[in-house]
Amino acid sequence: MRILVPVKRVIDYNVKARVKADGSGVDLANVKMSMNPFDEIAVEEAIRLKEKGVAEEVIAVSIGVKQAAETLRTALAMGADRAILVTATDDVQQDIEPLAVAKILAAVAKAEGTELVIAGKQAIDNDMNATGQMLAALLGWAQATFASKLEIDGGKAKVTREVDGGLQTIAVALPAVVTADLRLNEPRYASLPNIMKAKKKPLEEKTAADYGVDVAPRLEVVSVREPEGRKAGIKVGSVDELVGKLKEAGVI
């Protein structure tokens, strides 16, 4: 089985995001970028399936600016076998929308003869939570989102999903799209020998045009604002005073 893992280059989760002065989005110029943390979990899961002998090959794919090659090298250092970089824009500020990404992924999945796609459940930059679902729809494959456990058995994937109020276990027929939730696994860190090996692994370069996909935005961002700063609190002396203050504030 061949597993495709889409990985997105996003603003590093440690970085304090700053909104651009014109309110058009988060400033990404000269900011540390890393692999979307949910995608790291997806890569880890795919590698584990390979280590168990369930999969033969793990292919990482990234769609965006050419700098996403660094993100792919991270996936290769973790253990992916090869990578495909699909350059879709030169502008580091442009976010390629889920539908365009899903269309490109569908084309890659078909071209590579993939039976399983493991993606992150969402990207931490735009929090869309849409690409995996759209991809499954475009391919006409089964989907299992928010996975916290994944087992492959014969032609089926048994997936435990984190749903509101508990866990749901479903079986889906392969080929399928699975999206990884936080508790699926704990991704490994790359070892030095694997970082060195990753530099020599194949990284194929494509463009969105190679797949005939138009990546022009279809959504309009009206404005982006920083969250409001937290206001100072007050200390209260008793439960009665607390209740009084809450009433005053009109919340109870």
Partner: peptide
């Protein structure tokens, strides 16, 4: 502390 350089892969790991 948000700077990166050409050794980022080593630093991150």
């Amino acid at each position: 502390d948000q700077r990166t350089d050409e050794y980022q892969d080593i630093r991150d790991a």
